[in-house]
Each structure stands twice: as C-alpha cells, then as structure tokens.
Amino acid sequence: MNAEQVMDFSNFPQAKRIGVLGFGGLGQAAAKVLAPKKEMILVTVADKKGYAYSPEGLNAKECIATYHSQGSVGYLDIFGTLTNYSIQDLIESGHPVDGYFLALPNLPNDFIASVAQQFIKSGWRGVLVDAIKRTSAVEQLLKMKEELQAAGITYMTGCGATPGLLTAAAALAAQSYSEIHQVEITFGVGIANWEAYRATIREDIAHMPGYSTETARAMTDAEVEALLDRTNGVLTLENMEHADDVMLELAGICPRDRVTVGGVVDTRNPKKPLSTNVKITGRTFEGKISTHTFTLGDETSMAANVCGPAFGYLKAGIGLHQRGIYGIFTAAEIMPQFVR
C-alpha cells in the first residue's frame, strides 16, 4: 500500500452530520477543528441568540466572522435563525444531525443535564458528547443512564482534556500495576485574552476558595477583570472538584480519593505556565512502586486538547450507536477513534 492509497478518503462512508452547541471560544475552536475533516461535517452551530444550519455544511470562518461582527450565528445569511431559545428550537426543528458536541458552559451546575433532558424529551436519537468538568455534574448525568438508553441516545461524558484525554491516559497507564496508589493531574493553560474563553474562566474561578458555581456565574466581566488584576492574570487551582475521580472509580481503576486535579491558568499569556501532565503511581505484581508520567506537548493549546478528544469520543459514540448501544459512557471506559 503506497502513501497515495493511505490518504484516499473515497471509500469512507458518508460524513457524519455534526452540531456544536455553544459558540464561545471552545465552540469556535471546535468549528475550526472540524473544518478539514472528511468523516465529519459541521451542519449546525448554536449560541445564546440563535443558530445556523446547512445540510451541506457550514463555513467555520463565516460563522465565526458573523458571531464576532453581529453577536450571533443567527445573523448568518440564508442559514441563520435568530431566537432566544436556540437549543430548544434547534432540537425541535427536526434537522437531521448525527451527533452534537455540547461546548456549553456548565453554569449553573445542572445546565448540561438539563440540555440532555431536552434531547430526551424531543425524541431525537443520536450521540452527544461533553467536556464537562465537575464530579457532581457528571454524577447527575450518570443517574440519567436508563433514560438515555430508553431514548436511543449514546452519551459520552467527560471527554475533553481533563476529564478526558488525561483520564484515558491514566486508565491505560494503570494496566502496568496491580494497585493504583495515586493519580495526579496537573494542567497548565495559557491564553492571550480571557474574554475569548469567558465561560471557561468563570468555571475555573468557581473552583477557587471562597467561590462557587453560583458566585462565579453572577460575576460581571468587570468583577472578573478586577480578580485577574489582583492575581496578575494567573489563577492557581488546587484539589479541584474534577470528574476524573468518579470516572476512574467507575472504571475500577482506583477509589476517587486517590485522584487529585489542579493547575495554573495564565489569562494574559498564550504560553503555558507549566506542562500539562498526569502521573500514575502504583505497585506492580512484583511489589515495585513506580510512576508513569504522560505529558502533553506545550505547543498544544487547551482548545486542541479538548476539541480533538471530544470529536474522537463522538466518533466512538457513533460506532456504539450504530450497533444499538445506548446509555452513558465516560472517557475512561471507551477508546476514542481518530477523526480523519
């Protein structure tokens, strides 16, 4: 087989129709990630004020330009629809979509679960994937397993970077050991301007001492700016409520109290303040104590490490759905499939 044959996409099945809910920094990055793909085509995006749909595929650059210039993809010529109930109206429109990436802020803490309920009630059947962070939010979704199964929905949860990519790496690395003593996830995020990822930064603030999901959600942009001024733009997060713990426990890797997650977010510098990594310490069958470390390249952005895995898990979910396997699965249970 030569290189030309390897890169021949002509024998692939028809591209899957994908939607992105939420069009802030993460949603826009997701659209860019999908743009060159052959196996998936972006047919719809939704933001707070509207949505856009095209069965032939949307142009990511046009969607982003319209969002920035007019505040909503609902203004997109021909394909846009303005509505204050964009997710509900999009679901009820009946437009054929095989899978959605929920690139939504999870403030309040039950928001993603409420969106999943909308899909269940609508009668839509397909695949959903999220990059949710909090343990309590994932636990809400896990309780919906039977509802999702009955609705014919395959739901992939915790499928970003952490939880997600690093959780899966921990699950794989754990195979070297007879017992896992500790899983330590440390992330570094660098962004040039916090306003490009307002929802993500607010979720990070919610993990800080003295803050909650409610207080972070209620903060004005000016209040966020004032907090960042006091910290020189750097957020240091320790012992976060991150769903890596419940996901690894559910997969039988280790009790959740052996999993810790923390990191540093620099909101004024695109360079990572530290390298993102996961360390898995355990005892081998010979009685040796050792640590595996999986480190992400500093050149990979938060968006690359969230959106890439999310679509990889969405592809895996589509494979499950086609086989009639519905319900909810985590990044520690299923291997992602590379989207070409």
Results as ranks from 00 to 15, higher is better:
19 G>H: 01
269 N>H: 09
201 I>G: 03
118 Q>Y: 05
296 L>H: 07
304 A>I: 07
45 V>M: 15
38 K>E: 10
326 Y>S: 04
247 M>C: 11
84 N>L: 12
190 G>L: 08
214 E>N: 11
154 T>K: 01
119 F>A: 02
328 I>S: 05
5 Q>R: 12
209 P>Q: 12
186 T>I: 13
126 G>A: 03
148 L>I: 00
173 A>N: 10
296 L>K: 06
326 Y>L: 00
116 A>Q: 02
100 Y>R: 01
98 D>C: 01
62 E>T: 09
192 A>C: 09
162 T>D: 13
3 A>R: 14
177 Y>P: 02
7 M>W: 13
247 M>P: 06
254 C>A: 10
78 I>D: 14
117 Q>N: 14
315 K>M: 13
220 T>Y: 07
259 V>G: 04
198 R>P: 07
205 I>H: 01
308 G>A: 15
243 A>G: 07
278 V>A: 07
295 T>S: 14
9 F>I: 10
190 G>R: 04
59 N>Y: 08
291 T>R: 13
139 E>D: 12
162 T>H: 12
107 L>N: 08
8 D>N: 11
28 Q>E: 14
12 F>H: 12
192 A>Q: 13
245 D>R: 09
260 T>M: 08
45 V>S: 08
237 L>C: 07
180 I>D: 01
118 Q>P: 03
288 K>R: 15
307 C>H: 00
284 T>I: 10
303 A>C: 12
14 Q>N: 10
70 Q>T: 12
44 T>Y: 04
131 A>M: 09
88 Q>T: 15
207 H>A: 14
243 A>E: 01
162 T>R: 01
332 A>S: 12
324 G>I: 00
62 E>L: 10
333 E>T: 04
55 P>F: 08
11 N>E: 12
82 L>D: 05
313 Y>V: 01
44 T>H: 06
302 M>N: 14
